[in-house]
Every structure is written in C-alpha cells, then in structure tokens.
Design a protein around this nucleic acid. Structure first.
Lengths: 265, 265
DNA sequence: TCACATTTGTCCGTATGTATC
DNA sequence: AGATACATACGGACAAATGTG
C-alpha cells in the first residue's frame, strides 16, 4: 500500500535550534527557555513540521527506527523517544512486524480528550467548569449552525436522530448517537475551531454520563429534545433553537449534578 | 528540600495488564484494545496512579532512572520512554545534575493548550475561522469575567495595561503585553476551560499579527481599547464591556483582513 | 577555583517477539 | 513453515550538566 521509502528531507541533523513553531511561552510559564532542546525533541519537532506542512499525511509510513536514526544522524534511543512524543500527541502510531513501522495518523482529538480527563482527575478542572463552558460554547456553535449549516449537514443530523430512534425501537439505548449529535452540531457550524473544542468536551461528558445507569426513557427524551432543536434549525428559528438547546443542556447538567457537587470545591 | 529516597511501592513488575485508566473509546477510535500494553506504558501508568492517589505530589523527586529501572525490574530505556510520556502529559519535568532527576510538577493545563495548538495547526484552520471563533469565545469569556472576576484579577489586568503604557512611553511596542491582556482576561473568567481555550487561540493570533510591521501608534490604540474595556468591567457594565470588546476585536480582524481574504477559501 | 559524585542525554550492540510475505 | 523486517527491550559505555565540598 503506502509507499514508504520516504527520505526525511535534508535534515540530517540540521537541527540545532529549530526555531520552534508558534510558542505559547510569552510570559510566566515557568518552563523551558533555558533548557536547550534535547535531540529527541528536535527530531519530534522536525517530523511534526513535515506533518503540518503536508509533506507527511495520515496513512504515510515513516522509515523504520534504524533508518530514521541514520537519516537524522542520531541513535536509536533518541528516535524512540521522539516517536513516543509523537505517538502521545496523536501524530503517529507504531506497528510491529515486517510491513510495520511508524505510521502517520490523526488522533489528536483523542489525545486532547485524554488530557482533559487527566486534568479533571488532577482537579485542575472541575466538572462544574466544564459543563458551564460546554453550555456557552454549544450556544455559540448553534448560532453558527443556523448561519452556516448546509443541507448535507442537516441530513447527517437527521440520520443521527433516525439511527437513535431505531435503536430505541429495538429496545437499545442510543447513548453514543446522542453524544454524537453534539459533535455533529459542532461540525455543522462549519468552523473547525468549534469542532476541536467541542470534541474533547463531549468525550469527557460522555465518560461521566456513562457512569449512570441509563434507561430507555431517558434516551428517548434526549432524542426528542434533539429532534426539536434540529427542527428549529431547519426552520431557521435561531432563538428558539438556542433556548431549546439551553433547556436540554441544563437538564443534562442536572443529571451530572452529583459529580458537580463532588467537584465543585 | 524534597526528600527522594522514594520507593515506588511493590510494583516490581506487577504490571502485566494494568487495567488502563478511564477510557474514552466510545466509538470509532480504531485503537488499542488488542495491543497488549508495552512495558513503558505500564510504568507510566503506575507512576501516574501514584500521582492521582496523592502519594506523589508536585515538588517530589522520583528516584533516578537507574534506580527506577531497578525497582520496576526493567531497563533504563523503558524508564526513559515512560518518563517521556509523563513529561509530555505535564506530570513531571527532568533535571540534569547531581540533585536532578524526574520531579513531579503539575503543568497539565499547559499540556492541554499545547495539544489544542497542535490540533489547530493540524486542521489547517483558516484565519477567518480562527478570528470568528475568537470573537465569540472572548465575548463569552468577558461575560464570565464580569460575573466572577475578583479584585486580584482586576489588579493584574491593570498592571498589564500599566506595563504596556510604560513600554510605549519608552518608545517600545507592547506587543506581548497586548496579547497577554486577552489571556489574563480568560484567567479572570475563573473558568479554567476558557483559559485553556484562549491560550492557543492567542498564540496563533499573535503569530499572525507578528508578521505585520507593528507601529507605536497602533500599539497605543490597542492599549486604550483595553483600558476602556477594563474600565467597563470594573464598573460592572457588562454590555458596554462586551460591545467595546467586540469593536476592538473586529478592528483587529480588519487588520488581519489581508490574510483572511487569502485563506477564506 | 577545582575536583568529584550524581544524574540525564546519547550512542551502540545485542537479543527477543511479532507480524508479514 | 521459514525467512524477513520491524518494534521492543536490555546492558554497557561515555559525554554533558549540575550541585557539593
């Protein structure tokens, strides 16, 4: 399949001080400006650059560790540590075996969700904060859905509801579909920033909601709320849609209240 | 200072299948349930557990790599790869030298912002999308600033403006301070989720703005806008503040119009 | 200032397991 | 089934940084 006699461009250790991509460290970040970049960081950054530039795309195979070590002019351990960074950041996965090696993927949003969970476990973020932010962001998202959504988006949302209803008819809960609905809404806003922000939040919300014993009645209720919202969207009744969404989200928030109370302070 | 004759509890390779932390894989994650956990992942998970449990707290020093390798019954390379995961996740930093070693820190929120930045760069988000999202998110943020900001937050914002003004008087642009103002606003919302979201957005905005030749006149204008906004905040005039912010951001957006036109489609 | 010990950073060689052909 | 190519992992070695006496 994917050709992989890739030559990492002429970076054979051109990396002395890769003028790092956009930095966040403007100020007071108690971090690394002192620590001259380590080799594995430089390698990781170089590969990331190639991915950002589009030279490397999901599905592409990187050369094997040994070959990477040769091309970058570093040892294998360095390459391995660089790959660990890329893997944890959601840029690559590794496959063992003969046609294996590092493969470019795009699972950054998963990565984000996991980090969010870590942050919650470390109590740096409370579920209260998260749900508050969720409501606000989704309200904004919805206003852009009404502005920007195309027929295809509406169709996808309708399919989501349809699938959910079918499950209910079969006596199965539609948990995943109901979470998915909100992610699809974000996509329908046609703004990737919103998509990126909503995805990990919904993953965490799903994680917490899944700890309740769900029941069919509730699933059904959620679907009906989604249906109403979608209807208001198609009718371009913006304010109606937003108020429906708000009601819906506040109800979900109440169901999470147990967790919220636990984490509020 | 920090004692570090820590003995990692009796985990001398008890890790066969550490029942992985909270999972997110609800759906379509094409991921790892098959792949039996690798040694460095197991080590990483064990150490993370100790951090979550509170056994290890920020400031604590972990044993040296060699000692960790001994205690876990694995090689040093495995320990190093585990440390890379923990480092990138914001749980530890490493210091060289005699009193060095892995040290527990808590920079998870930074990690989150960095991941968001990766996602933004990966999705090839247009400046148009970015500025649209920025305006909306900052408006929400500001409404929470007015609700939640404490005197200390206001003070910090005032200091920011003061510092910026001083720079202008000295004939120096106050670029960083003017970017910082928006990050500080996010912090003053007292919702960490907003803080995390605004950070990468401002990083990208700063990156684009820095490509213009800035001038003192403009810097000054920006500071005055910030000052007006802050004044409206302290006077609890919410709507006024928001409309001022909106004007300000739209003006910035106009300055970016060149790029926006280029990237709009 | 100058050794000295400690610890990360890095390289190399080797062995093993595993997936593919 | 056997050969191949790859990740995974171990151990030894040395350089570089850093704090101590």
């Amino acid at each position: 399949m994917s050709e992989s006699n890739l030559k990492i461009p002429n970076l054979t250790m051109t990396m002395k001080r890769t003028s790092s991509t956009v930095q966040i460290n403007n100020q007071e970040t108690l971090f690394n400006p002192i620590n001259s970049k380590r080799a594995f960081e430089a390698v990781s950054t170089e590969i990331k650059k190639l991915i950002f530039k589009g030279t490397l795309k999901p599905g592409d195979r990187l050369p094997s560790e040994i070959e990477l070590a040769r091309q970058f002019g570093v040892g294998r351990q360095t390459i391995r540590e660089a790959l660990r960074l890329l893997e944890l950041s959601g840029f690559i996965k590794t496959q063992k075996g003969v046609m294996g090696g590092p493969i470019i993927v795009d699972t950054i949003l998963n990565t984000l969700s996991n980090s969010l969970l870590d942050a919650i476990q470390m109590k740096k973020i409370t579920i209260y904060e998260l749900t508050v932010a969720r409501v606000e962001i989704e309200k904004v998202v919805l206003s852009y859905v009404i502005k920007n959504a195309e027929d295809s988006d509406i169709k996808i949302l309708e399919e989501n509801i349809h699938k959910a209803k079918k499950k209910i008819e079969d006596g199965i809960q539609a948990f995943d579909e109901n979470i998915q609905f909100h992610k699809l809404l974000a996509k329908a806003s046609r703004n990737h920033v919103f998509t990126i922000m909503v995805e990990p939040i919904m993953a965490v919300v799903a994680d917490f909601l899944s700890r309740f014993e769900q029941n069919l009645e509730h699933s059904k209720k959620v679907i009906l709320a989604h249906e109403d919202i979608l209807k208001a969207i198609t009718e371009k009744r913006g304010e109606k849609a937003i108020s429906l969404l708000e009601d819906h989200l506040l109800e979900v928030r109440n169901r999470l209240q147990v967790f919220i109370d636990q984490s509020r302070d």
